[in-house]
Design a protein around this nucleic acid. Structure first.
Lengths: 243, 243
DNA sequence: TGTACATCAGTGAACGCGCGTTCACTGATGTAC
DNA sequence: TGTACATCAGTGAACGCGCGTTCACTGATGTAC
């Protein structure tokens, strides 16, 4: 919806979009490592050299695709969260996790681009850092808000301290400040990291084929693991859980 | 230590080993998608066509590397477990998880080959299924033995049922039979899946760069998350935890 | 122990393919007077 | 409104590279008599 004045600018915007779309589709069939500028150009009926009017290099195109994928995922996660009553924290947690898995299942190769093995020879520039952290930030936001609202109970097992407490605490406290979780107790911070890594772990294991022939209904099992994680983090509100 | 009779057989065994070693080293610098038969041959000072005396194709070589990596990881995990007193179940859980992460950190590209995004154009044959499940099988074994020994308490929250209970239960019960966990309650089966996916999730997020600039001492945080998972599964024995 | 033959590791050339990137160019679109 | 010039999208050829795989071959190693 940006103001485009001339026909040239319009054509440029349109073609940039088409190149990205085609590249995304190629990604979905061949994977990131096999993404080829020439193949994209070929499909669009233009010379490979013409693509260089739009992207300075293959890596540049990849970077844009990565950022847009992070943003697509981030949008979905945030929308899902925003659709839930702000005070239904456990419910919100489910919404975000469910949205992440849904998006991942719908865009497996884009998910792999973000959370799979790094593309050989490609180094992500700084620009990807911000979008890359949106899901984690939103999860942290829910935990922080829930804590402040008194809807998270600290774990009962405070008696038995965790191993490596001193070494881990440095990281966790710094993390808490970055994510605006200043007053959340460390016990809950670790649990948030646990839940975060569990969610992505499940989705990765599912999409990368480690559950083949073992779990037929991953969605159902994922729902359960999400609920267990929500309880482990300490969410107490008992708003109805989405199915 | 197999009986090798002729000089030919000895040379063949030796060269097969060298090809695999070189390929593994290339994997470690360039990633799986970039693994090239020609590059391997070049480094060994032989013609690319000569490699075909040892491996029928590039995919064949990849398959062998995958199986051997699964087995190397499986060996490490099982050795770590076997080094602990059999009845110290929580301790054993820590040993296996720690071994997995240690191996992964030491062999990041081999780990990526196993648990990262699938290599484009490569389809894993049946032979990888067995070795690929060794870590999960060992974790399940610990849970099963711990349960039978009465060292795992069922979760207290049985009152609040999990979502999707009926759909998930089918999968979980079948999984339990495959892994010889017949009498372990469903609540603990889900928790085992949670812990399993959390462990691999953490390692993947760490190795694939999602923790850069956020967690400086992943080992310490990993130790903590492992302990939390062990408690969540329900291990009750309080043998000292390894540092 | 020696010879004749079979096995098989390794060579070198070739096929056919694809890739990213550069560069001098044509010709259409935009702009300033 | 019309002309002169600048901008820039797209072309086509080329550079230099690497890849997996096949095939007819040489020559060393192994085996049977």
């Amino acid at each position: 919806v940006t103001a485009i004045r001339t026909a040239r600018e319009l054509a440029r915007a349109e073609l940039t979009k088409q190149i990205k779309e085609t590249a995304r589709r190629h990604l979905a069939t061949s994977g990131a490592a096999a993404l080829s500028l020439r193949a994209v150009a070929r499909e669009l009926g233009m010379t490979s050299s013409a693509v260089y009017r739009y992207f300075a290099s293959r890596d540049d195109l990849l970077t844009v695709l990565i950022i847009e994928a992070y943003d697509a995922l981030g949008d979905r996660a945030e929308q899902a969260d925003d659709a839930v009553a702000p005070s239904a924290f456990r419910h919100r947690w489910h919404a975000v996790c469910g949205a992440v898995r849904e998006w991942a299942v719908a865009h497996p190769h884009e998910y792999a681009l973000l959370y799979g093995s790094p593309v050989p020879g490609y180094r992500a520039p700084r620009d990807t850092a911000g979008p890359g952290v949106r899901v984690a930030a939103r999860l942290a936001l829910i935990v922080g808000a829930g804590w402040r609202a008194g809807q998270i109970v600290p774990p009962s097992e405070q008696a038995a301290p965790l191993p490596c407490a001193d070494r881990a605490e440095v990281d966790l406290r710094r993390l808490a400040e970055t994510l605006d979780l200043g007053d959340v107790p460390v016990e809950i911070l670790v649990r948030t990291v646990v839940a975060w890594s569990q969610m992505f772990g499940f989705v990765s294991l599912e999409l990368f084929g480690q559950m083949a022939n073992a779990i037929n209904d991953p969605e159902a099992v994922f729902e359960q693991t999400t609920e267990i994680m929500a309880r482990m983090v300490g969410f107490t509100d008992d708003a109805p859980t989405p199915t």
